[in-house]
């Protein structure tokens, strides 16, 4: 059980939903599936993207605050399908890697 938190905490913090990341680190969020889940939800529900209120250019005007880097709640159907595709590929990659790990272990005979 000990490794499960190591996977879950990044899902919570790096998903670019609750807290922002510096632009350079934002691609880290690609590794968490919660980020893609949130992107699909945001697009489907036509939500406003999350904004970093600490970095607004015009104080008091939320629209002047920068959107979290790489976050895109584009409500188009094509975008939703894309993100679903990413989620499926994410799953397939995990299962594929699991198969590779199992196969490699077998060879250590």
């Amino acid at each position: 059980m000990s490794v499960v938190p190591l996977v879950l905490v990044p899902q919570l913090l790096l998903a670019l939903a609750l807290v922002s990341l510096p632009a350079g680190l934002a691609p880290l969020s690609y590794l968490t599936s919660a980020r893609w889940a949130m992107e699909a939800f945001g697009s489907l529900a036509h939500l406003q993207p999350p904004r970093d209120f600490a970095a607004c250019t015009i104080p008091g005007n939320p629209l002047s605050c920068p959107v979290y880097p790489t976050v895109d709640y584009d409500p188009s159907t094509a975008h939703v399908f894309e993100v679903w595709g990413v989620l499926l590929a994410y799953t397939a990659l995990c299962v594929g890697f699991a198969a590779v790990v199992l196969a490699r272990r077998d060879r250590e005979r």
């Binding site: 889940a37 489907l44 529900a45 939703v80 499926l88 799953t91 397939a92 995990c94 272990r105």
Partner: peptide, 25 residues
């Protein structure tokens, strides 16, 4: 329905991660 599909797909990604984590190594 669309929200449900998204929830299900997210859950599958978790399933994949779980299998990967637990693959004996």
């Amino acid at each position: 329905g669309s929200m449900l599909v998204t929830t299900f797909l997210s859950s599958l990604s978790g399933l994949g991660m779980g299998l990967l984590l637990r693959a004996p190594r």
